[in-house]
Amino acid sequence: MPISYYLALSAVLFGLGVIGFVFKRNIITIFMSIELMLNAVNLAFIAFGRALGQLQGQVFVFFVIVVAAAEAAVGLAIVIVIARNRQSLNVERINLLKL
C-alpha cells in the first residue's frame, strides 16, 4: 500500500491539532492539541523513513518524543502556576500582557 495514505492521515491529524489549538479555551486542552500535532509529525517521519528505506526518520521520532516529554514537564508546571495565581484555566482570562 502506498505511503501517501499514511501521509494523508498525518496531515488530517495535524490539521485537527491546529483546529483544537485555535478553537479550545482550556489551557490544558490546548496543550494536548500540541501533543496531537507532534504525534502527527512523528507518523509523517516514520512514513517517509519507510518510503526511503532509511532509519534516520525513526531517530528523529525518538528525539521528538524526548523533547515532547521535557516540554510536557515544563509546560504543565507553568499550567499549575497559572492555575494557582489566576484561579482559572480559561485562556481568555489569562490576559496579563494585554493593555
Binding site: M1, P2, I3, S4, Y5, L7, A8, L9, S10, A11, V12, F14, G15, L16, V18, I19, R50, A51, L52, G53
Partner: peptide
C-alpha cells in the same frame, strides 16, 4: 484546510512506495 492538506500531501506523494524493510 483539513481536506486540502490531506489531498495535496496524499496526491503529491502517491508514487512513493515502501522500500523493502
Amino acid at each position: 484546510l483539513l481536506i486540502e492538506l490531506a489531498y495535496q500531501i496524499g496526491a503529491a506523494t502517491l508514487s512513493m512506495t515502501p522500500q523493502p524493510p
